[in-house]
Simulated assay, not measured.
Amino acid sequence: MEVEVKLRLPDSNTYKTLTSLLAPFHVRTHNQHNNFFDGAAGELSGRRAVLRIRFYNDQPARKCIICLKAKAVLINGVSRVEEDEEEIDFLIGEECLANPNRLGGLVESCRIMKRVKDEFFGGNDNNGELGLVCLGGFKNLRNVYEWKGLVIEVDETSFEFGSLYEIECESSEPEKAKELIEEFLKENGVGYSDSVASKFAIFRSGKLP
């Protein structure tokens, strides 16, 4: 179970203010490209699940992570979601993006894809073709900071219909982490609000919340 604090920033100016304030604590930046997949008949989404391939286009250390997420709940700026991740070869990930049928061929070598076959397709891979389709995706620039014992991620997410700015912080004590972050934001006059939808939900809606 992944548990995260999620706070939305109102605009790009607020985003720039916050990243300037956190600059002394910056540890890395990720250039991410997220792509999502479902069965042609909605086999995953019908059970509140989604398959994601995330490319980290960080030079020189590119990598690709396949992830199965399910049963997401976002209440009062705290997200809880069942999440399972696995790294796959970057070039294979690109092949899957170009041809989603390639994902079915990973069943024997990729734990995540075996789960997808067994849990959402009844163990039947139709001779290596699960019938998965790519739903599209979005790009995300993620700045990571280590601050007061927390790992804070500040995202600039680029959808076709606009940009979203968000703070994320994974924590086993989300209420305490949220209180600490909110105190910092208020002290520095940084506007924010609780996030009300996941990035994937916003992507699927086709509009900013």
Rank of each mutant, 00 (worst) to 15 (best):
R47V: 13
L91Y: 07
C110I: 04
L106F: 06
C96M: 06
P100K: 02
G149V: 13
E85D: 10
F159T: 03
K114E: 15
I66E: 01
I53N: 04
V116D: 04
E43Y: 03
V27E: 13
A177C: 00
S198D: 10
L74C: 03
A72E: 06
N126L: 11
V190E: 01
E87F: 12
D38Y: 03
D125A: 05
C134I: 06
K114Y: 08
K63D: 12
F55P: 12
L132V: 02
V133Y: 00
L132R: 00
E2L: 05
F90A: 14
F120N: 00
F121W: 03
A197N: 05
S20I: 07
E153N: 15
L130P: 06
E160P: 12
S45G: 05
S205R: 14
V144H: 02
G206A: 03
I65R: 02
K16Y: 09
P24A: 10
F138I: 00
E156N: 10
L9F: 04
G136H: 01
L91K: 11
R8H: 08
C96A: 13
K16R: 15
S12A: 15
P10V: 01
E4K: 06
I88M: 14
L21D: 08
A72N: 01
N143A: 08
S45I: 03
S193I: 05
V154M: 06
V196T: 09
